[in-house]
Structure formats: C-alpha cells, structure tokens
C-alpha cells in the first residue's frame, strides 16, 4: 500500500475560475525520492498543501498511511510528514538555533537529556553546532533554510516535503543541501523536493513528477541518479 495516495484530487482557490490542481491521481511509496517540478503557478505548492491537509480537496480522496487524511489532525500529519515552507523565516519561533531544534522535541514530551542529545546530533549533522547560540533571525537565508530542515528532521518524520529549498541559497550550500538530502534518504526518510532548479534536481535525482496548469503531465524517472 502506498504511503500517500491521491485519487482524482482537485482544488480551486476561492474567487478563481481555473482549478489550481486538476484531477490528480498519484501514489507515493514510503522512502521514495521525488522531484516535483513545474513553472510558477502550476500547482506544485497547492499539491503539497493538499497532501499536508492544509487545504481540503473539493473533489477526490487523499489517503495517508492507510487512513483518509481527514482522520488526522495537523499535529498527527506533522508526525508523519515534515514540511519546510518556501520562506524559512515563517518557521523560526525561538531565540536561539538550539532552542529552535529543541522546540518540537520538547512539545513531543522528550526528556531534557534526550532533547540535548538529539539537538547536538542533528546540529552536528547539518554542521550548525557552532551557530547553536545565534538568534535564528540573524542568520543568512541559506543558514535559516538549513536550521528549519534540521528542526523538522529532528522530529523524525517518515516523509519530508521541501518547498523551493534552493530559492535563496548559493551553489556551495545547494551542494551541501543535496548531500544532506541524499544521506537522509539513504537512512530511510522519503523526500519530495518542489523546485524548478534544474541543476539542483539533476544532482538530486529521484522520481520526477512534472506539473503544468494543475495537472501531472509527466511522471518518470528522468532525474534518477
């Protein structure tokens, strides 16, 4: 059974005539690596928001891990799918990078020692340990992006959705991000990267789903490594 399954899903924003997502049927397996591509306004982010339950489909069904998506609360969806939005500043709530990583872990009820251990492990993995006491808002956009990905991954979701992760990062950090995603995927976490950065996606690999005007027009392994 697919981890995420979409059956003829459609969504139209209020006041718009054209559907943002049209009749999409898609199966995503656990541990799969996906590149969701398409031009601006092709429905990529809308599709991600539908998968995350942030938008309710007007037609069709979405099943997550064997249960209809409507049965889950946002918190429960967040336990299964990690989501990093286009603008990382919207996901930074704390006064230090360390607290940013610890934020979700504390709310999950983890003990003090375990929180410290996990924060250290993930910050070191992302090469961010030296920034642990910095105010997240003072970091560069690329560093913010990594902090947010690190914070989401520390919650150990089974699947990760990244919306335009390379939007404001330089070539060096793109390569670093690609290596990190590769490593995460190798360890078993499924990943969906929403992007139109061809250079990054070619290096990233994975199943390519291409969208045009709200429809999936191509579902192939073009970017396969």
């Amino acid at each position: 059974m697919a981890f995420i399954s979409l059956q003829e899903v459609s969504y139209t924003y209020n006041g718009r005539k054209e559907a943002a997502v049209k009749n999409i049927t898609l199966n995503i397996e656990e541990g799969e690596k996906i590149a969701l591509t398409g031009l601006n306004g092709s429905g990529k982010s809308t599709l991600a928001k539908l998968i995350l339950g942030l938008l309710k489909p007007q037609a069709g069904n979405i099943v997550l891990d064997g249960l209809p998506l409507g049965k889950y609360s946002l918190v429960k969806i967040g336990e299964k799918i990690g989501y990093v939005v286009q603008n990382p500043s919207q996901m930074l709530f704390n006064t230090s990078v360390f607290n940013e990583i610890a934020f979700g872990l504390k709310w999950k009820g983890k003990g003090k020692d375990e929180v410290f251990h996990l924060c250290k492990k993930y910050l070191e993995f992302f090469e961010l340990w030296h920034l642990r006491d910095e105010l997240p808002f003072n970091l560069s956009e690329g560093q913010k992006q990594l902090v947010v990905i690190c914070a989401v991954l520390a919650l150990q979701p089974r699947f990760l959705i990244l919306d335009e992760p390379t939007k404001s990062i330089d070539t060096f950090r793109k390569k670093r991000l690609k290596d990190i995603l590769q490593e995460i995927w190798r360890l078993g976490t499924g990943i969906m990267v929403i992007s139109h950065d061809k250079e990054f996606l070619t290096a990233y690999g994975g199943r390519r789903i291409h969208m045009v005007k709200g429809e999936v027009v191509e579902d192939a392994g073009r970017y396969q490594n």
Partner: peptide, 28 residues
C-alpha cells in the same frame, strides 16, 4: 500551520503555556 506541523496541538496547550506559544507565533 507550521507550529502545528512541528508538534504543537494548539487545542490542547496547557493554560500556563498558552502565552509561550503565542509569543512563538508572533515572533516571526
């Protein structure tokens, strides 16, 4: 949405933690 996806159930936040959560929300 982001705060809920990171594990904070806003409907079940304890009264003493409400202020902390709302400070978190309004900081960004």
């Amino acid at each position: 949405h982001g705060i809920q996806l990171r594990g904070v159930d806003l409907r079940r936040v304890y009264k003493r933690k409400v202020l902390k959560v709302y400070v978190s929300i309004f900081s960004p």
